[in-house]
Design a protein around this nucleic acid. Structure first.
Lengths: 138, 138
DNA sequence: GAGAGATCGTTAGCCGGCTAACGTAAGTCG
DNA sequence: CGACTTACGTTAGCCGGCTAACGATCTCTC
């Protein structure tokens, strides 16, 4: 029944959020910071605006999260060599150290969340999530 | 692939949240208030603690949301007749008026989110969401 | 070259989730 | 009866999402 969709979704949302927070915060990384980290591990020195585009987040969300990560010693802000409007976010050594640690936590978390789903169901679930996002963005 | 699970989930989360906010806020109801409303429509006069238990939310989340709903004229606080520790949250006339309106918005929103899923897929999707919640709470 | 417009990042402030700490009221037990 | 414990709701403060408004810088056009 689609009447159950919203309660089920919100309950799952809170559960995933809480579990992610618990898994990552042990290492000084908060739940919302993992996606920024993933992008910077792939390409260090991205700007807040570019990160916001890639992650489909608002720019203020990225800048404030970046400030917290800066305070936590995970990254630092550097001026752009040619364009003074831009800010480059560059990982510190600590930021790079976290790569394997967070990847492992993420894998564990996903495995725990999807423990009762077989391979085909997991693929289908991810597809459903993607379709919901696409459906709502139109 | 379960590696895609977390990004897909978070993206869907933001999409649902944004769409819900857009749908409900037109009527002066914010996204997080709908579940409290549903409970009060079923049983008016519940306490914050009882609502928190039924919705699996923390008590402070409920009390603060209730304060906002009180300020918006949706409900009011009343003292409990026999236990002075308790607070009864009772819907105002406006709170009751919203019942049909919000129900319709919720149905429209769910239909839009799940538009590309057939009946069996929707059922499966809700089941997956429920399993994720259960898996993570253990 | 100078001014208008576009782009970028930050700040302020809202909502929704949480934990910790607090005060008050009820219940329990000596 | 009095003290301790328990239960309840609120407040304060954190994180993560958002929009609106701002200042600074670049770009484009005249």
């Amino acid at each position: 029944m689609s009447a159950d969709f919203q309660p089920a979704f919100w309950a799952a949302k809170r559960a995933v959020m809480t579990a992610a927070e618990e898994a990552y915060s042990r290492h000084g990384v908060r739940a919302g910071q993992q996606f920024i980290l993933h992008q910077l591990w792939k390409e260090d020195g991205l700007t807040p605006g570019e990160l916001a585009r890639r992650l489909e987040l608002s720019v203020p969300t990225v800048t404030r999260t970046a400030t917290r990560m800066e305070n936590a010693g995970i990254l630092r802000r550097e001026p752009h060599p040619t364009d003074a409007r831009l800010v480059r976010l560059r990982l510190t050594e600590r930021g790079w150290e976290l790569k394997d640690i967070i990847a492992k936590e993420a894998a564990t978390l996903s495995e725990r969340a999807l423990a009762t789903l077989d391979s085909a169901e997991r693929e289908q679930f991810v597809r459903f999530l993607h379709e919901v996002r696409v459906n709502l963005s139109r």
